[in-house]
Amino acid sequence: TTVHVNGVTYHFPNPEEAKKFVDRVVKEAGLTVEVKGNQWDVE
């Protein structure tokens, strides 16, 4: 699973890890998340 955060790419072994990361980032920074298949874009 690939997560893009403001142009930076993070790779995770599974969607659960990616979701935990995204949830944390979104809570801390108040960002928006767009999910496209296995790819997350966070802005």
Score class of each variant (00 low, 15 high):
Pro15Gly: 06
Val8Asp: 05
Gln39Lys: 09
Lys19Leu: 09
Leu31Lys: 08
Ala29Tyr: 08
Phe12Met: 00
Val3Leu: 03
Thr2Phe: 12
His11Ser: 04
Val26Trp: 08
Asn6Ser: 04
Glu16Arg: 03
Asn38Arg: 03
Val22Thr: 03
Gly37Lys: 08
Val25Glu: 03
His11Phe: 13
Tyr10Gln: 03
Thr1Ser: 05
Thr9His: 13
Val25Phe: 14
Gly30Val: 05
Glu28Leu: 11
Asn6Cys: 15
Glu43Leu: 14
Tyr10Met: 04
Lys20Gln: 09
Ala18Leu: 04
Pro13Gly: 06
Ala18Glu: 01
Leu31Gln: 08
Val22Asp: 01
His11Thr: 06
Arg24Met: 13
Val3Gln: 00
Gly30His: 09
Trp40Thr: 10
Pro15Tyr: 14
Thr9Lys: 11
Val5His: 08
Gly7Phe: 01
Asp41Tyr: 15
Arg24Leu: 12
Tyr10Gly: 03
His11Asn: 04
Asn6Glu: 04
Asn6Pro: 02
Glu43Met: 13
Gly30Glu: 06
Thr32Ala: 12
Lys19His: 09
Val22Pro: 00
Ala29Glu: 09
Val3Trp: 00
Thr2Ile: 11
Asp23Ser: 03
Tyr10Asp: 02
Lys19Phe: 05
Gln39Val: 12
Val42Asp: 12
Gly7Pro: 00
Pro15His: 10
Tyr10Ala: 04
Lys20Cys: 14
Val25Asn: 03
Phe21Gly: 00
Phe21Thr: 00
Glu17Met: 06
Val5Leu: 12
Val5Tyr: 14
Phe21Leu: 01
Glu16Leu: 04
Val25Ile: 15
Val25Arg: 02
Glu17Phe: 02
Asn6Met: 06
His4Ala: 08
Val25Trp: 13
Thr32Pro: 07
His4Asp: 05
His11Arg: 02
Asn38Tyr: 03
Glu43Ala: 09
Glu16Tyr: 05
Phe12Asn: 00
Thr32Val: 11
Gly30Cys: 15
Lys27Thr: 07
His11Tyr: 14
Val33Pro: 06
His4Lys: 14
Leu31Ile: 11
Pro15Val: 13
Glu16Ile: 07
Trp40Arg: 09
Lys19Ile: 05
Glu28Phe: 07
Thr1Tyr: 14
Phe21Met: 01
Val26Ile: 14
Val5Gly: 00
Ala18Arg: 01
Val22Ile: 14
Gly7Gln: 01
Pro13Tyr: 05
Pro13Glu: 14
Val35Leu: 06
Glu17Ser: 07
Asp41Gly: 09
Val5Gln: 01
Thr9Tyr: 12
His4Asn: 12
Arg24Gly: 08
Trp40Ser: 09
Lys19Ala: 07
Val3Ala: 01
His4Thr: 15
Val22Glu: 03
Phe12Ser: 00
Phe21Asp: 01
Val26Thr: 13
Glu16Thr: 07
Lys27Leu: 10
Trp40Phe: 12
Asp23Pro: 00
Arg24Thr: 10
Thr1His: 06
Asp41Lys: 03
Val22Phe: 12
Thr9Pro: 10
Asp23Cys: 12
Lys20Leu: 08
Glu16Pro: 00
Val42Asn: 11
Phe12Ile: 00
Val42Thr: 13
Thr9Gln: 09
Phe12Val: 00
Thr2Gly: 00
Gly30Phe: 07
Thr1Met: 08
Asn6Lys: 04
Val3Cys: 13
Val26Met: 15
Glu16Ser: 06
Val25His: 06
Val35Ser: 07
Val25Ser: 03
Gly37Phe: 10
Gln39Asp: 13
Glu17Lys: 02
Val8Thr: 05
Pro13Ser: 13
Lys19Arg: 10
Ala29Thr: 14
Thr1Trp: 14
Val8Cys: 15
Val35Pro: 05
Lys36Glu: 12
Phe21Cys: 03
Gly37Cys: 14
Lys20Thr: 04
Lys20Ala: 11
Val35Lys: 08
Lys27Ile: 07
Gly37Tyr: 10
Glu17Asn: 02
Arg24Ile: 09
Glu16Val: 06
Thr32Asp: 06
Phe21Val: 01
Tyr10His: 12
Asp23Ala: 04
Arg24Asp: 07
Glu28Thr: 09
Ala29Gly: 13
Asn6Ile: 02
Val42Gln: 10
Thr1Phe: 14
Ala18Tyr: 02
Asn6Tyr: 05
Thr2Leu: 09
Lys36Asp: 12
Val25Met: 14
Asp23Met: 03
Asn6Val: 02
Glu17His: 03
His4Phe: 13
Gly7Val: 01
Val26Arg: 13
Glu16His: 05
Tyr10Ile: 12
Val3Phe: 01
Ala29His: 13
Asp41Arg: 04
Phe12Cys: 09
Thr32Lys: 10
Val35Asn: 08
Glu43Asp: 11
Ala18Asn: 00
Phe21Ser: 00
Glu43Asn: 11
Val3Tyr: 01
Pro15Arg: 05
Leu31Gly: 12
Asn14Asp: 09
Glu34His: 14
Glu28Cys: 15
Gly7Asp: 03
Val42Tyr: 08
Val33Lys: 05
Lys27Asp: 05
Thr1Arg: 03
Phe21Tyr: 02
Ala18Trp: 02
Phe21His: 01
Trp40Tyr: 12
Val22Gly: 02
Gly30Asp: 06
Ala29Val: 09
Val5Ser: 02
Glu17Tyr: 02
Lys20Glu: 11
Lys36Trp: 07
Val33Gln: 05
Pro13Asn: 11
Val33Met: 07
Val8Tyr: 07
Gln39Ser: 11
Thr32Gly: 09
Thr32Gln: 12
Ala18Lys: 02
Val5Arg: 02
Phe21Glu: 00
Thr9Asn: 06
Val33Ala: 08
Lys36Ile: 13
Gly30Ile: 06
Asp23Asn: 03
Val42Trp: 07
Arg24Val: 06
Gln39Arg: 12
Phe12Asp: 02
Glu16Lys: 04
Phe21Pro: 00
Glu17Val: 04
Val3His: 00
Thr9Ile: 15
Val8Ser: 03
Trp40Pro: 11
Tyr10Ser: 04
Asn6Gln: 05
Val26Cys: 15
Val3Ser: 00
Thr2Ala: 05
Thr2Asn: 03
Lys27Asn: 07
Thr2Met: 07
Glu34Ile: 15
Trp40Met: 11
Val35Phe: 05
Gln39Asn: 13
Val33Arg: 05
Lys19Gly: 04
Val26Lys: 11
Asp41Ala: 06
His4Gly: 02
Lys20Arg: 12
Asn6Gly: 07
Asn38Ala: 06
Val3Glu: 00
